[in-house]
Design a protein around this nucleic acid. Structure first.
Lengths: 206, 206, 206, 206
DNA sequence: AATGAATGAGCCTTCATTCAT
DNA sequence: CATGAATGAAGGCTCATTCAT
C-alpha cells in the first residue's frame, strides 16, 4: 500500500513516478529490478521512494494492482457488449486485450513478467496465483454456458478453463513472434483461434 | 563446456554437484541463481566450481544440455512407438513428458525456468528461442499430416503449431494446480486434452 | 568525475578521503590498488566509496587531476618569474618541483606511479601519454630558444627534449637515493644539473 | 633458486618454460602476473611449476637473473672492444643494448618491468636497487676517466653517473616513441646522444 | 516532505599455494 | 616426477534499506 505521502503527490508527479517504476519492473524480474535505478531514472532521491512505499514489494504489488486496473478498464468496455456465444466473446475480449498490449507495451510487458514470477520466499508464487484466478473466472463462465447447453458436457470445465486461459496467455508471444502488426492479420489470427476453439469445445451440432 | 576436471570427477561427486546446481537454477532465475550458494549448499569451496566450469553461463548451458538429454531419453522411448494418428501421438508423448516431470521435479522445474528466461544481455532470448524451435518442430509435423488429409486445411499450420505448443507448455502447471497425482486422473485429463484437440483440429468427418 | 555526493562532503571528510585514497594509489599500481583496502583504512563502508565515485577508474583519474593541480600550483609560482635563459628556468622549475615532492611525498609518489603505468586494456598507455606530452612541451620551448640562437642547431630538438624530460623524471629518485635533504646539497646538485645541461646543449660560445 | 627438478629438465622443455614465463612477466606487473596463466599457456599442470620453483617470487628472481645474463652476454661482446674515450664506449654499448632490445622484445620488456617495480612488501624496491647498482658501476668508470683528465672535475661523479644512467634508461622508450627502426636513424640518434653528453661532461678543451 | 549519505551483505571471478595420487 | 583437485581470501561492484538533517 502506498503511504499517504504518495497519495497526496501532484498528479503529474505521480504519473511520472508510475511510468518509470513500471518500466523498471517491465524490463526486469522482481528481484533484478532496482529501486536505486528507478531513483536514478527519475532523478529523485532514493529516500523519496521509501517515503511513498514501505518496501520494494509494496511498490511492486501496487504496480500490479494499478496495471491490472488499467488493462481491465480497456477490456471492460468490450465485455459490456452482447455476444452471440462464448466463443465470440472470447475472440473479442482477447482481441481487445492484445490491442491494448500492443498499444501499451510497458504495461503489457510488466503484467507478462508478473504472470511469470515463479515461487520465491519473498513473493510466494505469483504465477500460480494468477493462473488459479484466471482459471476460476473462466470455470464459472463455462459452467454457465454448459448449463445453457452451448458447451460440451463430456469434458470437465476445469480442463476447458485451463485450455482457454493457456491459449490466451500465449497469444501475445505468438503475435510478436510472427510480427502480426497489421489489424487485418490480427483479425485473421483471432478468427482462426475462435474457429479451433469452437470446434474443440462446442456441443456437437450433429 | 565443463573442464576436463569436471569430467574426471568421481561419479558420485559429479552427480551430487549436478543435483545441487540444478536445484539452484530450478529455484531461481539465471541471474538470481548464485554460484556462491551452490558452493555453500555443497559445502565445497567456491573456487572449486570454477575448476569445473569457466563461467556461471558455462555451467548453465551445460545443465540445459544435461537436463534436455535426460528428458529426451524418457520421451524418446515413447516416440518410437507407432500411433493411430497425430492426436494419439500428442497424448502419449505429453503424458510421458508429464510423468517424467512429476518423477523429476527439479529437472522439470529447471527446464521450465529455462523456457521462461526473458531477454538479457548475457543470455539472449532463451524464451523466444525455445518457443520458436518448438513451434517449428510441430509446424513440420502438422504440414505432413495436412498433406495426408488428417488435419484441417482452413487454419494456418502456424496457428495450430502455436496451439499445441502453448497447451503443452501449460500442462504441468495445471496438473500441479489440480493435484493430479493419481495415474487414473492423469489419464482422464490427457484423454480430454486429446478429445478437444482432435475436435478442434481434425478434418471434419462429415 | 566524482558524484555530487562527494562534492558536498564535509571538507575534513573529503580531505581524509583523498589522503587515504592517494596513499593507496601511491603504494600500488592502479590494478593492485584496492578499493576494499581504502575503505578498510578509512574505516568506512566499501559501498560509500561507490557513492563518491562511479568506478575505481573514475576515482583514479580524479586523483590524477587533483594531484596535478596541486603540483602545478606550486610550480606555477616559479614559472611566472623571469629567467636569464632556458637553463636557469629549468633549474628553478625542477628545484621547485623537487621541493614540492619532498614536502608532499605521497602526492609525489602517486604522480610518479601514474607516469609509470604501462599499457593496460583499462587505462590505455598512461606512461607513453605522459612522456609524449612532456616531450612535446619542451620541444616547443626549445624550438623557440633555437630560433633566438641560444641553443645548438646541430642536434634535433626532439633529442634534446627527450634529454631534458628524461633527466627531469629521474631527479627525485636520485635525490632520495643520495639523501639530499639539506637545502644546500639540493642547490649544489641542481647547480651541477644546470651546468652539464648548459654545456651540452648551449650554442658554442667560441 | 630453481629446484633440482628444474635443472634436470630437458633443454627444450626448459627453454619453452622460460619463454612463456618471461612472456607473462613481460606483459604484467609482478603482482599481476599469474602463475595460473603461465600453466595454462604452457598447457602443463599448475603443480609442476611449483615443482620447479618454490614460489612465484622464486621464479621471478630466477628470470631476472636469466634475462640479465642474456643481455649482458650481448653487450659484453661490445665492451671488449677498445674505445677512443668514455663517450664512444657509451655510445657503442647503448647502441648494442638497444639493438638487443629491439631484437628481443620480450626479454627487453621484462627487464624494463623489473627496473620499474616500485616498493612492495613482497619484493622490496627493485627499482632503487637496479638504479643503485647501475649508478655505482658508472661512478667507478667515471672516476677512472676523471683521474685520466678526460672528464670535468667541477661536477661530482655521482651526478654524472646518475646522468648517464638516467639517459640510458629512457633510450628505448624514445626509440619506440619515435619509431626509429631504421639502423641509419638509430645511428644518428646515438650520435646526437654522444655529442650532447661529450659537450656536457668532457673536460673543456679551451 | 524530501534528501542522500551510510551501511554491509551479497554478487561473480581470479589467485597462489598445497597435497594426495 | 607430474598431476590437478581443493582451498579460501581477495578483487570490483550493486543492492535494499535506514536515518539524521
Amino acid at each position: 500500500m502506498p503511504t499517504s505521502t504518495f497519495d497526496k503527490l501532484k498528479p503529474e508527479k505521480k504519473a511520472r513516478f508510475l511510468e518509470f517504476a513500471l518500466q523498471e519492473f517491465a524490463n526486469n524480474t522482481y528481484e533484478n529490478a532496482s529501486v536505486t535505478r528507478i531513483g536514478q531514472n527519475l532523478a529523485i532521491a532514493k529516500g523519496s521512494i521509501y517515503q511513498y512505499f514501505a518496501h520494494k514489494k509494496d511498490l511492486y504489488f501496487y504496480l500490479i494492482d494499478y496495471a491490472n486496473r488499467q488493462r481491465q478498464a480497456a477490456i471492460g468496455q468490450v465485455l459490456k457488449r452482447s455476444f452471440s456465444d462464448f466463443f465470440a466473446m472470447y475472440e473479442q475480449v482477447y482481441l481487445a486485450g492484445t490491442q491494448f498490449d500492443l498499444a501499451n507495451p510497458i504495461l503489457s510487458r510488466f503484467l507478462h513478467n508478473v504472470a511469470q514470477e515463479r515461487f520465491s520466499a519473498d513473493l510466494g508464487n505469483l504465477h500460480q496465483l494468477t493462473l488459479k484466478q484466471s482459471i476460476e473466472y473462466f470455470k464459472n463462465l463455462l459452467k454457465n454456458e454448459q448449463s445453457k447447453g452451448n458447451i460440451r458436457q463430456d469434458v470437465k470445465v476445469e480442463t476447458m478453463a485451463f485450455w482457454v486461459v493457456q491459449i490466451g496467455s500465449g497469444i501475445l508471444d505468438f503475435v510478436q513472434l510472427n510480427n502480426l502488426t497489421e489489424e487485418a492479420d490480427l483479425r485473421i489470427f483471432f478468427g482462426e483461434i475462435k474457429e479451433i476453439l469452437t470446434n474443440g469445445m462446442q456441443t456437437s451440432k450433429i
